[in-house]
Design a protein around this nucleic acid. Sequence first.
DNA 1: CTGGATGCAAACTCTTTGCATGCAT
DNA 2: ATGCATGCAAAGAGTTTGCATCCAG
Lengths: 152, 152
Amino acid sequence: MPSTATVQTEPPADLEAALVAALRRRGQRVTPQRLAVARLLAERREHVTAEDVYQRVAERLPGVSLPTVYATLDLLEELGLIRRLLTESGAVLYDPELTEHHHLVCAACGEITDIEAPLDDQHLRTAARRQGFTPDRSQVVVSGLCRACRQT
Amino acid sequence: MPSTATVQTEPPADLEAALVAALRRRGQRVTPQRLAVARLLAERREHVTAEDVYQRVAERLPGVSLPTVYATLDLLEELGLIRRLLTESGAVLYDPELTEHHHLVCAACGEITDIEAPLDDQHLRTAARRQGFTPDRSQVVVSGLCRACRQT
DNA sequence: CTGGATGCAAACTCTTTGCATGCAT
DNA sequence: ATGCATGCAAAGAGTTTGCATCCAG
């Protein structure tokens, strides 16, 4: 995923529309399943697992299958409309928030929260180039304790 | 950054000794399997998968089992002697390097390299505290293209 | 001795695949 | 009409668990 991702960021609310546009552009089908997945992600705007998506989409569209949900999530990620995250515990989450942000992970309960703050990664990017690497984007995970776990 | 991890950082070469000390302290057994795993990690000093460890340890200690390798890796991680990493593709790697460092991940081939550069995460940590979180450490993953993949 | 660690095999979870049917275009 | 997307079921990868045996302390 090249430079584009950071440049053409779309408002999350347009995720459904962006998907439809991308599908037409690519000559792929606009199906109820795909729309339902996109809508759900746009509404929730938080990290969800494939299983979450499946459960919730199934409420509105009985009969969707988990493989279809995975396929659609893959598609959305390929289109750069959502982002795939990995927790410390190895679980896969999908994040419909496209604006640059980072994550807090609680070492005790595993909860993941967005963190809104700029990152100064100049030194890292410079060092990366020095090592022959062409940096695209930086993702930070800050681990620690959430408020609830801190008190126990 | 709390305390322990940064303060009592041991040279990787002492990983075996550190394990033995920790085992005795906790009244756990010093077994050939555990020693072999520790020694291998100390020697390689790079990211390895559980399978890697299993294969290589088995060369010296025929009969080790994969579950034992996993158990030992979990133990080492719990003791803070190695670190668990997750790649974008979901694979789990174990990193015997304890000094603070970050990672470069090639978006094309998935290769992971260490990056040696300081991180200015002041803003992130402050923001984390403002959100009620007690930050411990920050881990950065810079994605981009490695030298080889860039040329294709 | 004695309980914790091991090896084996099987279970488990999450994700992907193959194939026949069906629907968007 | 055409063939891509779907649903189902089953396979697959990676990790964990249960249990009898064994060995470090």
